[in-house]
């Protein structure tokens, strides 16, 4: 059972971290509607700082959840997590990409409900193709070819490489891609969000 758990759990963990991040990210709009952000702005804090703080908070919660899940599964299920530093790099790159894609989706969606629906669709799609529900190698070749490009597969592949003690580059390659793409998406998403908050177009 342990081998199967170890094969399936990382993908499931990444999928649920996506949903946790989604819930935390949506809080920005709750705070906007509750005028918390207006009060902060009145206190001299810039909108840029507010948005960055929310993204860092989201990043921190993802880290905490991942850390708790890793420690718990290591102690209770004996999952052989290896190379803590590389694991941190892989998960951080995944979290950065997650922040980026959330910022972009919430920035461009007309309402938080629409953003919520889009993120659920995107995350579930990425989870199915990325091997969260079944071992990736068991998927048909066509789905594997598409799933290889999903964030969940890239993060999962990084962890799989660590489990199997592959060369560091194998887990570092997808992580670098995720970090670079995530940084670009986060930058673009934050700019869009800032413009929306400044214009007051929040449904």
């Amino acid at each position: 059972m342990k081998d199967m758990f170890q094969a399936v759990f990382p993908g499931l963990m990444l999928m649920w971290v996506c949903f946790i991040a989604n819930g935390v990210f949506a809080d920005i709009f709750e705070e906007y509607r509750g005028h918390t952000i207006s009060r902060l702005l009145a206190g001299g804090v810039t909108l840029w700082e507010v948005l960055l703080s929310k993204m860092f908070r989201c990043l921190a919660i993802c880290w905490i959840c991942e850390l708790l899940l890793i420690v718990f599964t290591w102690i209770v299920f004996g999952v052989g997590w290896r190379h803590p530093v590389m694991l941190f790099v892989v998960l951080t790159s995944f979290n950065i990409f997650l922040m980026g894609i959330l910022a972009l989706i919430y920035g461009y969606s007309r309402s938080t409900e629409l953003a919520n629906a889009i993120t659920v669709f995107v995350f579930l799609f990425a989870a199915v193709l990325g091997g969260s529900f079944m071992p990736f190698n068991e998927l048909p070749k066509v789905l594997q070819a598409a799933g290889r490009w999903t964030m969940i597969r890239m993060g999962n592949y990084g962890m799989e490489s660590l489990f199997q003690s592959r060369a560091i580059w194998e887990s570092l390659g997808p992580s670098l891609y995720l970090t670079a793409a995530g940084a670009v998406l986060a930058l673009a998403g934050t700019r869009v969000l800032r413009r929306r908050f400044e214009s007051g177009r929040i449904a």
Binding site: D3, M4, F5, V8, W16, I20, G23, C65, L68
Partner: peptide, 22 residues
């Protein structure tokens, strides 16, 4: 508690999948 519930779900799912397919 909201976060804890969210964290329990992947573990439960992984346990069920492991039990079924091991």
């Amino acid at each position: 508690w909201g976060l804890i519930v969210f964290m329990i779900i992947p573990m439960l799912t992984a346990v069920i999948i492991s039990l079924v397919f091991s």
